[in-house]
Amino acid sequence: MATALKEQKFVEGIRGCTDRIRRLREESVHGAVPTISMERAVLLTEAYQQYEGTCSIPVLRGKAFYYLMGHRTLYLGRGSLIVGEKGPKPWAAPTFPELCCHTLEDFDTLNSRERVFFRVTDEDKRIQRDVIIPYWKDRAMLTKMNGLLPRAWQKLFAAGMF
């Protein structure tokens, strides 16, 4: 309760803070729940499946980015002067399967952390299990990198040292 009162006084005391800014801050701080968004992972997978093997890797990445930008959800927030979010809604964090293909256990950890959490739905887990993991498990940069590093480093990584 005391924290909310301090926050309210802080926002009210900001010089030039408009009602729009107060409302947007309230929505951002107290209204949104951090979630995982599977949209980017699904679109990137579709693009890679469509173009992989038809062009060089730099061109493939460019085509995948173009596909992603042409198909992603563009969030238009009421009262925002800046268009877009990193996901289809505020506080929706995309995944990057080309860098690290998360396991379902990773998703459980993200969902159950007490402080810095991201809510993961059963549908998110289904998509990860049925679409993302089968395609990216052996293609992700982390997987490729781990295959090149010495066994001692891999053991340290698995133990959480890196």
Rank of each mutant, 00 (worst) to 15 (best):
V42W: 09
L43N: 08
T45I: 05
T45E: 00
E46P: 06
Y48D: 04
Y48R: 08
Q49P: 07
Q50T: 14
G53N: 02
S56N: 10
S56E: 11
V59I: 11
V59M: 09
A64W: 10
A64K: 04
F65H: 12
F65T: 12
Y66L: 15
Y66T: 15
Y67E: 05
L68W: 00
G70Y: 15
Y75F: 15
L76N: 05
G77Q: 09
G79I: 03
G79W: 04
S80I: 00
S80P: 00
V83I: 12
V83C: 07
G87E: 03
P88N: 09
P88W: 06
P88L: 03
K89H: 14
A93W: 10
A93T: 06
A93H: 11
P94Y: 10
E98R: 07
L99T: 02
C100W: 00
C100N: 12
C101F: 05
T103R: 14
E105G: 01
F107M: 15
N111F: 01
N111L: 04
F118A: 06
F118Y: 10
R119W: 03
V120C: 09
T121F: 02
E123W: 07
D124F: 01
D124A: 06
K125Q: 04
R126Y: 00
I127H: 06
R129F: 01
D130Q: 13
P134M: 01
Y135I: 02
K137S: 11
R139N: 05
R139V: 06
